[in-house]
C-alpha cells in the first residue's frame, strides 16, 4: 500500500460549518483501514492494478481517459476483477453494479475510489 505520510491529529471542534473545499492534488483522504492517500497515489495504484490484471495494458499508454471497454476490451464481467484487488489495496468495498454501469474509464475508477474514502 502506498501511504502518504501524515501525522494523525486530533480534530478541533469547529463552531460553525465550513464550506467544503474543492478536491485538489494536495488533498489527502483516509481509507477504511486508516491509511492516507492523495489522489495521485490512488491513480498510481490503479494504473499498477490495471496492468497487473491485464497484461495488454502494459503495451498501452494508460491514462485517466483510457476506457475499459473500448481501449482495453474488457467485458462487463472482467471489470469486476478489480473489486477484490481494490478491497485489498484500498480497503474500500466498491459496488459491482456501479462498476458495471457507471465506471467507464480509469479516471472514473480513480474518482469512485477517491469518493469512497473519508476525510483525513
Amino acid at each position: 500500500m502506498v501511504a502518504v505520510a501524515k501525522p494523525r491529529k486530533a480534530k478541533k471542534a469547529s463552531p460553525r460549518p465550513k464550506p467544503k473545499p474543492a478536491p485538489s492534488s494536495a488533498e489527502v483522504r483516509r481509507d477504511d483501514s486508516g491509511g492516507y492517500w492523495s489522489v495521485a497515489a490512488v491513480e498510481r495504484e490503479i494504473l499498477d492494478l490495471v496492468r497487473a490484471i491485464d497484461p495488454n495494458a502494459k503495451r498501452l499508454a494508460l491514462k485517466r481517459a483510457t476506457t475499459f471497454s473500448g481501449d482495453l476490451g474488457w467485458d462487463d464481467w472482467f471489470k469486476l476483477s478489480v473489486l477484490k484487488p481494490v478491497r485489498k489495496r484500498f480497503h474500500e468495498s466498491l459496488s459491482a453494479t456501479v462498476m458495471l454501469d457507471r465506471v467507464r474509464t480509469v479516471g472514473d475508477l480513480v474518482d469512485y475510489i477517491w469518493a469512497s474514502m473519508g476525510p483525513a
Partner: peptide, 16 residues
C-alpha cells in the same frame, strides 16, 4: 458460473 479472468482473451482483447 464463469471465471472472471484467466486465459488470454478471456473477458479482454487477446492483444491490443
Amino acid at each position: 458460473a464463469s471465471p472472471l479472468r484467466g486465459a488470454p482473451g478471456l473477458g479482454r482483447w487477446v492483444t491490443p
